[in-house]
């Protein structure tokens, strides 16, 4: 039931990512911490559909959100597709079905993603002020996971919700 994701749902997911990154994210920033919807949905798709779908979804999400930051376009696409691919591989090897496990995975992935992203895109700053980088990466990861948990719950129980309303 959960694995039935159609092309329309993927397109809707991409539109939602762009909408969220352009409209919502700048408005709900808390200091340096922001929510990365591209990471949330890439992790979800990879956990549901596996490595290849996760990778392509990550590539699409990376390209669509990368054009908003053209300097980092290649890095965002690469890291998101790599995230999709690696999470999908982990999903194939481990039992990732329980929701808390998925949320924990999201936290770890978001943290690593942020640190690696800053390492590659802001190499000098990474070594100049590492504590600041780690703290902001952790806060962003935590904030992303918080919102991601809500999104995951919604996606997991969307059929139940649909029947309710």
């Amino acid at each position: 039931m959960v694995n039935k994701m159609t092309t329309i749902q993927y397109i809707f997911g991409f539109i939602f990512i762009v909408f969220f990154q352009m409209i919502i994210t700048p408005r709900i920033c808390i200091g340096n911490a922001y929510v990365d919807m591209a990471v949330i949905l890439t992790v979800w798709v990879a956990l549901v559909k596996g490595s290849h779908t996760g990778m392509f979804f990550g590539l699409g999400a990376g390209l669509l959100t990368g054009v908003l930051k053209p300097i980092e376009l290649g890095w965002i696409s690469f890291l998101l597709s790599a995230t999709g691919f690696l999470v999908g591989n982990i999903k194939d090897k481990l039992i990732m079905e329980p929701l808390p496990v998925r949320i924990l995975t999201l936290l770890i992935v978001a943290l690593i993603y942020n640190i690696v992203f800053i390492f590659f895109t802001g190499f000098e700053m990474f070594f100049r002020n590492p504590s600041f980088i780690f703290s902001s990466a952790f806060l962003t990861a935590a904030y992303t996971t918080l919102v991601g948990a809500i999104v995951f719950c919604f996606l997991r129980y969307r059929y139940v919700l649909r029947n309710l309303f």
Partner: peptide, 21 residues
Amino acid sequence: AVFVFCFILMLLPTAFRLSIS
């Protein structure tokens, strides 16, 4: 293919990436 494509994106001239953006 995907990773090669991403590396090509990284190597694209900044002006080109800006125009796409």
